[in-house]
Amino acid sequence: MNIIVCAKQVIDPEAPPASFKVEANKVMPPAGVPPVISPFDESAVEAALKLKDAKGGKVTVLSLGTNLLRDVVKKPLSMGADELVLLEDPAFAEGDSYSIAYALSLAIKKIGAFDLILCGRQAADWDSGQVGLGVAEILGLPSITLARKIEVTDSKAKVERINPDGYDVIEISLPALITVSNEIGAPRYPTMKGIMAAKRKEPVVWKPADIGADPARLGRRAKLVKLFQPVREGKVEIITGETPEEAGAKLALKLREIKVL
């Protein structure tokens, strides 16, 4: 089976919160912290590789952006994906969920035959969770979000979709688009063989003209008015004691004193 995974390069969400800076409505990349593949997109890669393990087939990864670091965007290849297609152009830089879903769907049409498209449930930067569903809508595909397990049989997939009380088991006809959550299981580590293979593999790079993108549709519908860092007031009272045990007990007494307990 043919699977296409959309994976995005983002600022490392695990970077120390203190290194996070906004200037002139833009997030400044933290110094010395390289970008990563958005963690939920790595979960989507993992889901694709699990299906490939079970059923065989080909996994093509599609990444869109600017300044895509090859060492970063090649990670899915080193995990076991087969092909990498990059949509890399400054014209993609100012996009929102609408223009990005448009560009990805054009690229997917150009890639051709597929049974399944997988995306992360949301990206670690804008936490939007819209691009996958947008691709499904543009391509006229059925979709399921928040998958924690995917099984494929013939022309259907059985998907466990997370909800606050547990999960629903949903059957969907293929081809389909599914967004994946971290509950799918930890993404596998790249193997030495995978890393070597990824090194040798050159990604296919497409520009807007290669996918026939209408420049007018690469603009934004959602206009960013303001981006700011909320102020957090650090007013913690640290309870101390002669021993750690005493500190713990004193905290309980303090909470009783202020009637929290």
């Binding site: 930067d125 959602a222 960013l224 981006l227 860092q229």
Partner: peptide, 11 residues
């Protein structure tokens, strides 16, 4: 946005 590190206002 950014996992709660920032907030964005859209129209």
């Amino acid at each position: 946005v950014y996992g709660g590190n920032a907030q964005a206002v859209f129209t």
